[in-house]
Design a protein around this nucleic acid. Sequence first.
DNA 1: TGTAAGCTGTGATCAGTGCTCGCAAACAAG
DNA 2: CTTGTTTGCGAGCACTGATCACAGCTTACA
Lengths: 229, 229
Amino acid sequence: MPKTAADVRAQAKAAMKQAILDAALRQLAETGADGLSVRGVARELGMASSAIYRHIPSRDALLTDLIIEGYESLGQEAEAAERAIPRSELPERFSAVCHAARRWATANPHHYALLYGSPVPGYAAPTDTIEPATRVARLLAVIMVDAANEGAIRVTAPVEVPPGALEPEILTDFLPGVAYPVAVAGIHAWSSLFGMVSFELFGHMVGSVADADAFFDAGVALLSAQVGL
Amino acid sequence: MPKTAADVRAQAKAAMKQAILDAALRQLAETGADGLSVRGVARELGMASSAIYRHIPSRDALLTDLIIEGYESLGQEAEAAERAIPRSELPERFSAVCHAARRWATANPHHYALLYGSPVPGYAAPTDTIEPATRVARLLAVIMVDAANEGAIRVTAPVEVPPGALEPEILTDFLPGVAYPVAVAGIHAWSSLFGMVSFELFGHMVGSVADADAFFDAGVALLSAQVGL
DNA sequence: TGTAAGCTGTGATCAGTGCTCGCAAACAAG
DNA sequence: CTTGTTTGCGAGCACTGATCACAGCTTACA
């Protein structure tokens, strides 16, 4: 079908917005979220700062777009790493996801800090961000569901958990067939994973951990064992 | 001994600095680190903004002072909670420290974010902050050393860790008598603890965890088991 | 006692920020 | 050809961190 003039216009507008996002991403990678300024991306694009506001409503909205892009970039990398492992090798798939997350974080530290550091705009995350934010978690969940279906989960968990800690939808939609204590251990492993990455990236382990690679390997092994893989 | 005039002067100067820190802490609690402004604390103290710089070299230095105060406040609360438990009840002491940390974090969310969120000034933490930052970790370490001395650690750890992951001084000075794999599990538990707290505080668990208290209880139990208590 | 030195607070000022608004050019639709 | 919409521009507002010359005040010393 032929492109209408409106299509051309819409495409140009989308390209402009993408150029803004790319410039903002470059600035984020260099100076961090604090150093990212709307006037700076305007300078980089050679236009007046006020012109930027024709394409984005505010600086916070720009950061939100970068957050979404970050979650999707991280999710893609984790999914690609997991896809490269045969489906039957459950601990290897788990490990691949964890290592991919750490790799993405160390490659894009400022972007990672924007996702998992202090929430800059406020406490409530914009609703647009919650869906892409679940991609890594969903990946880990699929592995656990596969393990449960194969009966491959060794329930070594020596911990009793009172019922009701998790949202019911998580158990039914996200982790169907996974026993409740194992699901709790899974969510815990998910938060522990990003706790490790954040601690390493934010400099909390400088005096205690000598070989970050080896330590992360051991941590992933501990988490893997904790969820029964 | 009588106060010399110089003493009075020094005391007044210290009081002024403390007043600045108090005002800054109030602003931090209200608006977060991003919203904290030197001019704002000057307004609150009824003085010109330039006068603040007689007592503080820069805004970053002010934030550094708040970071140190935060680590010490958190450390004191954790130490008090641990002291209230009989020394022989090792898992209870461990749990008390974890819950005290979470309690302090939820009571002072912006202050917590300043400590464990994205490092705002830069990547290298000022050297003044690394010593107070270890207080909670030291508390957990003492518990593990006590457990090792009593032979109370059940080494259930099913994970092999290659040597050299931790700094040697940590093993000798911080965790003397603790077996290497257990020490690795301890550092891992430390990072997992703050991973849990950060995930909860920064809103990453909104859709998955229904009862944050119960989930945290379960997480602490998992960590406790992981270090062999 | 007189004077020089140091500390502390002030207002002005600079460069930078997010964001708004009136205006003008370009372009699409009628 | 004439509307109406979109897109960019420059000026401007209110705010920020930080510096500077200046003025008091207190202290120390001759």
